[in-house]
Design a protein around this nucleic acid. Structure first.
Lengths: 251, 251
DNA sequence: CCCTGTGAAAGTGTTCACAGCT
DNA sequence: AGCTGTGAACACTTTCACAGGG
């Protein structure tokens, strides 16, 4: 399975698979809930059920982080919360800016999940002068003219784009030029960014279209003689990572 | 994945890979833009660039739909728009209900991407009597007492949940009991549903945590001698099912 | 025995490279 | 010649099943 170097007992492995990274926040949530109920330890089976995955996958995922469990017993909840938080980088503070304070931007500003982990809404930015100074979620909206200054003054490296699609790319360019290196994009636009900048996209219309595809298939296959029975996908999360091949791929 | 068997031999007929399905809406969007500019044909290279994927992947994806291109020329834009729309089930009307009309629910109700394809917001539902009758995006909010009747009167099979996490599961149960078979869940909760019901999840906090992971890694590897250079991931979403703090969650 | 940790097998997705049609 | 369509190679992910420590 290795690209040449197959060794290392995996204490602090360097290559956590992307699929695993995407599940760590899930485990963290389930663990946080257990922690609040003062549950001291949990088995892979129980935790997997709470997170909605199967236990083999969970154990495999944890094996990339190291051996944090105890055979015959399970995992120490507090210890695991700490390890996963650290691995995800949540033990530090991440100032975030939200650009585009429409309905969606306001919804995000009010979203509790931001503050609940290391994320802090450092600023809300909008291009409409009428919005400037208005309070949203207890934060005064600032004008986009000051975007660069806001980014650098607050040491922001993560930006959230909730603007109309027409201006998303130029907002993105300005964010990147100002030093942002991770972007969460809600605009239905393909953003192009230089190497070294991560973009994740959330696209409502795409999610619905995927549901429609499966929905249509359910209806259509009720009377099919040849097709195998389709048992609907339980939790949908596949999606195609893709990318466009950056220059260098780590081995 | 609770699903017993989701095996798909895909021998020759209906077996479009999930990863391909997830990209079809992307292609469709790019094609629609070309169509609006009256571009008659497009090559895999051009379309791939517009959609942000590579051309080999795009051709492979299209090959699952059939041979809709012309060698030496490319793809007919209008024809492809039609074929993909049909494949995704967008040639029919999909009435959708949104349950939970807070900031996020209102944002979704106003989101243009809904109406732009076959989706139509058939009803907005909220448990707060103070919301009942209020107009959001030109639609009167209805009380959740009438949820079952609304679903069946409108023939709704797709539901969107934008409620607080604490009530998401019970809303989900009622939707399913009333006949909804596809759910788009924005609440940070793991929903359990019977077989035959699809759930897709959008979780803002998870997306941010994934970004934070990569962000942290970038910062940490600036001075690593042994590690290969990390070229950031171009792409976007992979998603992760998830669930969070069920009990008490301030903020 | 318990339950974790992990090789190996199976399944899924991506990329390559070129055959074959226009 | 140009560009699609695709088998085959490669890469990544999930699942299985069991070795091995507590």
């Amino acid at each position: 399975m290795a690209t040449g170097r197959t060794h290392r007992p995996a204490t602090r492995s360097r290559g956590i698979p992307e699929a695993t990274v995407a599940r760590l926040p899930l485990y963290l949530r389930a663990l946080t809930a257990l922690s609040e109920r003062s549950v001291p330890t949990v088995s892979s089976e129980e935790l997997a059920a709470a997170a909605g995955v199967n236990s083999a996958k969970l154990r495999k995922d944890f094996s990339y982080l190291g051996s944090y469990g105890t055979r015959g017993v399970g995992y120490d909840v507090e210890y695991l919360v700490y390890q996963i938080s650290r691995e995800l980088g949540l033990t530090q503070d991440w100032p975030v800016v939200i650009v585009g304070i429409g309905n969606l931007g306001a919804a995000l500003a009010n979203y509790g999940g931001f503050a609940s982990r290391g994320f802090r809404v450092a600023a809300l930015i909008d291009a409409d002068p009428a919005m400037t100074g208005r309070q949203v979620a207890g934060i005064a909206v600032q004008h986009s003219d000051d975007l660069e200054k806001i980014i650098s003054d607050n040491g922001v490296s993560i930006g959230v784009i909730t603007t109309p699609p027409g201006v998303a790319q130029q907002v993105c360019d300005r964010l990147v030029a100002a030093g942002v290196t991770s972007i969460l994009n809600f605009a239905p636009t393909v953003l192009s960014v230089p190497d070294g900048v991560d973009v994740r996209k959330v696209d409502l219309s795409i999610e619905l279209q995927i549901l429609a595809f499966h929905e249509q298939r359910k209806a259509g296959e009720e009377h099919e003689g040849t097709a195998p029975p389709v048992a609907a996908h339980q939790d949908s999360s596949e999606q195609g990572p893709d990318g466009d091949v950056p220059a260098v791929m780590p081995a």
